[in-house]
Design a protein around this nucleic acid. Structure first.
Lengths: 254, 254
DNA sequence: AAGTGGTCTAGACCACTCA
DNA sequence: GAGTGGTCTAGACCACTTG
């Protein structure tokens, strides 16, 4: 595969770094590099200037530059080889799957998300829920069952269980906003999510809700999300219409 | 949620750090911390000793300790909060989904993977393949179609396309080893993979091969993998029996 | 031999949280 | 105010790749 020559990015790209604001320097650098990759100022295969030179040219220390580059490596945009250099990965640039909710994914994709709340009820944790949330069996919880539409077409059935601390979530709020939005508005920060993605045949009820034939294939995802204290915030079991939704994942070897 | 007291890990855990060998110090530290979490020496919710104290106690610099901790944060095992400290995440500890192949996943799970090669043939890249591999339309490629069994039960149909550089892959090798094993044996290092996971109904042929009813739900995954030069090595389209396979993914907010 | 990224050090100052 | 993680610096030495 053709090895493109080293690319010296114009310093101008980095002239507006803000050293006094709250945004870290490595983040500002990473943003500008990412932009250069996305608009193909740095095309696939291009070799980056070496770290030491780049650092000195931008007036930053090498660790700061390294941190910026590492972030892009972790996103699958760059590849580093010792003794060789840093290059832009070939292949289409995909958005990173961050810890977002379906609602936000749809908004970003320009599809209009709407929600019908099928059920909101207090309940106690059975064994499965207790295991997932890390609470004792029988603990009070809130069960939510929603139907999510994209541009008016039914897309997913969302079953969620939350610890009782969030029992004051209102039906109205859930119709108008995504669950993660509502949680964030109460100061909860989701930090880690463990997901399991599978498939199965739709039940009669699911097929009915999603406007599918009974027994049609559906995509399933179960997830437990944890906040920045490491405590489970939410356990969800979702199923999606596979003709309208898929998961994108980028894996990077560290 | 209960906040467990600070946990001072015994220095003994870290006494056998090897400063002369090729294994980085941060990696050795991360391994020992991970082990302590997995065997619940550090139980869920436990607070770690602060970075500065830990560094001085182990005779390492703070950046080295930070790097070790960061690795575990990226794996979803630890959570950090400024002004508060570092804690072990609640919830079951899951193995990290690394950039592995199905063959290796099965081996690690103790299921015996076997493979039937359905077809191996040279071909030229159509538009879809060209796009995925980043090669011109019409480029020579190698198509491979395999049926993968776990403990003798059909599990997945694996369709793969590779650049012509790997056209010498033998049917025999493919029956006996995983594709990624064979690639690694030729010095290829996979670094980045972009996957798309979905579902659909099985075709008659797929149902036949996987021992399912026609129209049964199957789990699908398409993937492009890139080597450490950022060049596409493999494009795969796989489908799985959903009653015997699912994808596990851990997401971490950076 | 020259050039690259990988690791490690020893500090410094800051922002945030809690009592 | 004391303690925590977050950022940043300016070096150093090493391992690896290429010519």
């Amino acid at each position: 595969m053709a090895q493109l020559p080293e690319q010296r990015l114009p310093v101008e790209l980095f002239l507006d770094l803000d050293r006094s604001g709250p945004v870290p320097l490595y983040y500002q650098v990473a943003q500008r590099l990412e932009q250069a990759i996305r608009d193909e100022t740095l095309p696939a295969g291009a070799r980056l200037e070496n770290e030491v030179a780049l650092a000195s040219r931008l007036g930053l220390s090498r660790p700061t530059i390294r941190r910026a580059i590492q972030d892009l490596v972790d996103q699958g945009l760059l590849v580093r080889r010792r003794g060789i250099g840093t290059q832009v990965v070939h292949g289409r640039v995909t958005r990173n799957v961050e810890l977002t909710s379906l609602y936000e994914d749809l908004e970003r994709a320009g599809q209009e998300p709407t929600t019908t709340v099928l059920d909101v009820a207090s309940a106690t944790a059975d064994e499965r829920v207790a295991e997932a949330l890390g609470v004792p069996v029988g603990s009070p919880t809130l069960h939510i069952r929603r139907l999510r539409f994209a541009d008016g077409v039914p897309l997913a059935i969302l079953d969620n269980v939350l610890p009782a601390a969030y029992a004051d979530l209102e039906r109205d709020d859930l119709e108008r906003h995504g669950l993660y939005q509502l949680l964030r508005a109460r100061g909860v920060t989701m930090r880690v999510a463990k997901q399991r993605i599978g498939a199965r045949a739709a039940t009669a009820q699911e097929a009915d809700l999603l406007d599918l034939r009974r027994g049609a294939a559906i995509l399933t995802m179960s997830r437990t999300a944890f906040d920045n204290a490491g405590v489970a915030v939410e356990y969800g079991q979702h199923c999606y219409r596979p003709d309208r939704y898929a998961f994108e994942v980028t894996l990077v070897e560290r």
